[in-house]
């Protein structure tokens, strides 16, 4: 299992492992946060179904904002894979 480790290899390895860590852990928050938003929207729709469209719109806007950090994680992961 012997192999040479050069500085370039070490940097490349750190970037690739970092891509996995970035996307893996970066996905935790948005997933939970968007679930809360959708849950409260469901609660609201159960109480006031006539406002379902408004609630769905609000939910989607809120989820889009909460998604942003997940997209940052994706962008950083892709940068680490393809650019660094």
């Amino acid at each position: 299992m012997a192999f040479d480790v050069s500085g370039t290899d070490l940097v490349r390895a750190a970037a690739l492992l970092g891509a996995g860590i970035s996307m893996g852990f970066g996905a935790i928050g948005p997933g939970i946060g968007e679930g809360f938003a959708a849950g409260k929207a469901c609660e609201g729709i159960a109480r006031a179904p006539e406002h379902a469209n408004l609630l769905t719109r609000t939910m989607l806007v809120g989820q889009a904002v909460s998604e942003s950090t997940g997209i940052y994680a994706l962008v950083v992961a892709l940068l680490l894979i393809f650019v660094v």
Binding site: A13, G20, G24, G31, G35
Partner: peptide, 25 residues
């Protein structure tokens, strides 16, 4: 090589830990 090993480990970490939030949410 070290980069190939890191990519394999990173693949497992990305697919595994990214499931925590969406599953709970």
């Amino acid at each position: 090589s070290l980069p190939a090993a890191a990519a394999v480990l990173g693949a497992g970490v990305a697919a595994g830990f990214s499931g925590i939030g969406p599953g709970l949410g």
